[in-house]
Amino acid sequence: MRTGLFCTYENPERDYASAYADQTTLVQLAEALGFDEAWVAEHHFNPDAASPSCLSILTYLAARTVQIRLGSAALLLPFRNPLHVAEDVATLDLLSGGRFNFGVAKGGPFPLQNKLFNVKREESHARTKEALALIQKLLTEDGVNFTGHYFNVEDVRLTPKPLQTPIPTFIATSSPEMIKLAAEQDYGIMAGPPFPLDIIQSSRHQYLDTAGTGDPRLVLIRFYHVAPTRTQALEEGARFLRPFVERMQISTASMQPEWTHWFKLDRLIEDSLIGTIEEVRDKVLQIEATLQPYSLILKPMDPSLAKRRADLEAFSRSIRPYIGLPSGGGLHLKQPTQGLLVH
């Protein structure tokens, strides 16, 4: 199981330059510590997650790093022109030396995004599927002809072409329709921090049932926070997560009501990596055994850069050496708390 860092460019001080500098520092630290990947989110019109242009950010990070793989988590295809996306993805892959992972999504339950980008919510799935199909043809073929409902091109030759053929592609989704597409096209799947573990396991089973063989290459993103005691970790974790939960409850109620039950504070804490370092290690190893992720991607929660650095260092020192070892490398694992193991 690979490990990595999830970047959402929090901006608690309302100082965008510092927010970007801090996140760059964390990505460079993750690379120095031996983490395998760094993924950048795409969010719009949100000062607490200031990463609207994730491909631009990733291109900058490519110049500031050497070997860590860099991914979009995820590029919101309904709001973008697929010709521009293909050109930007190919350029980024070249400039990064073939280190790019292409994660895509239809966009979350945020009505302002659909309104301002003039995209109807009910069209998001279809636009995503059609845009992704066109982008993949542009990245891998010459003289592309494509006739769709939203996009049409004739005899297009992409310049430049990417280094990787194909570029590793992942869909962030829990939708059965999109899981089926990922399995049929040999894409990986991605699950963000709010996705419940039991839903993720169901998606994994559906992927395997559809594909017959193959690896879902699950990129699992989890909130991460450690403290000297469980009580402290849970109290701090709840404080960090509560504004997020409240905001998402409002958004899902209007845009995606079937997700509303996901955004319960206790449930979200249970499915996150929050506790003492030993408790988090046990949970990581249980997740590795049950969900078998391709990558486990950490979202440090504390607004302090020093604390986020310390938490990454603690994970590297006290958890990463045990990943991939049989039965937790001889550790006596505690029984997981209720809701951790999913079947």
Rank of each mutant, 00 (worst) to 15 (best):
Y20S: 03
Q23I: 10
T24M: 03
L26Y: 03
Q28V: 12
L33Q: 11
H44Y: 14
D48F: 11
D48A: 11
A50Y: 01
A50I: 02
S51D: 03
P52L: 01
L55M: 14
L55H: 12
Y60C: 04
A62Y: 14
A63P: 08
R64M: 14
T65S: 15
I68F: 14
I68K: 15
R69M: 11
S72R: 01
L75E: 02
L75H: 01
P82Q: 02
V85G: 08
A90E: 03
L92A: 06
L92E: 01
F100K: 10
A105M: 06
K106T: 08
G107A: 07
P109V: 08
F110T: 06
K115C: 11
K120V: 09
R121I: 09
H125E: 12
A126H: 07
L132G: 11
T140E: 05
G148K: 14
F151G: 00
E154H: 12
D155G: 03
L158G: 00
P162R: 04
T165P: 06
I167P: 14
I171G: 00
T173P: 02
K180S: 09
L181W: 09
G188F: 07
P194C: 09
P194N: 07
Q201I: 02
S203Q: 11
R217C: 01
I221Y: 08
H225L: 14
L234V: 07
E235F: 02
E236T: 11
V245R: 09
I250L: 13
Q256L: 06
H261T: 15
K264G: 13
D266I: 05
I269Q: 13
L273S: 13
I274M: 11
T276C: 12
V280Y: 05
R281F: 00
K283M: 01
V284S: 10
L285R: 06
Y294F: 09
S295R: 05
I297F: 10
L298S: 14
K299M: 14
L305N: 04
A306C: 02
R308M: 07
E313T: 03
F315D: 07
R317G: 06
Y322M: 11
P326N: 05
H332F: 06
K334V: 00
Q335R: 09
Q338A: 15
